[in-house]
């Protein structure tokens, strides 16, 4: 019964979307999208320097001789030859093409988003653990530093932080766009992870730490073997939520010279003039990432619940 209502609402919503696009006289061109995910264009082999081409008689290999130098390279394994024997080519000219399936810009963007999120996740976890422990430390210097970090990060917009990392920190430390982007995301997420971990640790009854200490364990030993394993189990759901946010927030790094999924989407829109299809596709690809993550976390939770 309620399942029927659920389906009905979804269908009505779908019809509404369709009707809305009709009203703005939009022509759906879904057929244009797949080539931006995977295509058969193949990869082009380009000249590493200016030079003359010598094609082998069997046309299965070619040799490039440098124009103003003595370097020469033999290129093989291509399917289509794009130059003739004796041609003069310049650096980066296409020499030949190898056919086969290659990832389109959206897939490359997805991969960049995945890499960025994964790197940021690992470092935000480390940062969050350190800052979270700092937030419960008795040492005023440690506590003060951890609190300042958390408040500073939570009190400013991520976009502003990304600009600071890209234009200031990145320039000063000569970071690549990827490093700057991953660092900004890690530092941002780390502050939230710290608060989640602090709350998790504080939710473990004091008696656990006391029992561990009464057995002769040091504070770090008690943390490592008694408190943190229990806190980790409790913080798994909020941590998962935070990491899903991380994946979504990573779209903000598209303001930098990084072609993540969102930036790729923008570029594809510019060349296809099919914004609706592209953005729906991009949204779906984000959903695949976040959905996989929450599935994985749910599995992990179930496994931890058993022991």
């Amino acid at each position: 019964m309620w399942y029927g209502v659920y389906v009905l609402v979804l269908v009505v919503f779908g019809i509404a979307v369709h009707a809305a696009s009709d009203r703005v006289a939009y022509t759906w061109r879904w057929d244009r999208i797949p080539q931006y995910i995977v295509n058969n264009d193949g990869t082009e082999m380009r000249a590493p320097y200016d030079g003359f081409v010598a094609v082998a008689p069997d046309k299965k290999s070619l040799t490039l001789k440098e124009l103003r130098g003595s370097r020469h390279d033999t290129i093989t394994g291509f399917d289509v030859l794009l130059v003739g024997d004796g041609d003069l080519v310049f650096q980066n000219d296409a020499l030949a093409r190898k056919s086969g399936l290659v990832a389109g810009p959206l897939t490359l963007g997805l991969w960049m988003t995945l890499k960025l999120s994964a790197v940021a996740l690992v470092f935000s976890m480390l940062l969050g653990l350190v800052a979270g422990l700092g937030r419960i430390a008795r040492n005023p210097a440690v506590y003060g530093l951890a609190t300042t970090y958390v408040e500073l990060i939570r009190g400013t917009p991520l976009l502003v932080q990304i600009f600071i990392f890209y234009f200031f920190v990145g320039t000063v430390l000569k970071l690549s766009a990827f490093t700057a982007g991953a660092a900004a995301l890690a530092v941002f997420t780390g502050a939230y992870v710290a608060e989640i971990i602090r709350a998790g640790i504080e939710s473990i009854p004091r008696g656990q730490m006391e029992a561990a200490r009464s057995l002769g364990m040091s504070v770090p030993q008690a943390m490592r073997h008694v408190v943190l394993p229990q806190a980790f189990k409790k913080t798994l759901p909020p941590l998962a939520g935070q990491f899903i946010n991380l994946i979504k927030d990573s779209s903000l790094v598209s303001v930098m010279a990084l072609t993540d999924l969102t930036k790729a989407g923008r570029e594809v829109v510019a060349s296809t003039f099919s914004p609706f299809e592209v953005w729906f596709t991009v949204a779906l690809m984000y959903l695949v990432l976040t959905g996989t993550l929450s599935l994985f976390v749910r599995r992990l939770e179930k496994r931890l619940a058993h022991d």
């Binding site: 009854p205 008696g207 656990q208 029992a211 561990a212 008694v226 394993p229 229990q230």
Partner: peptide, 8 residues
């Protein structure tokens, strides 16, 4: 009094 066993 409250045992304080390690539940995990």
């Amino acid at each position: 009094q409250s045992f304080n066993l390690f539940p995990h």
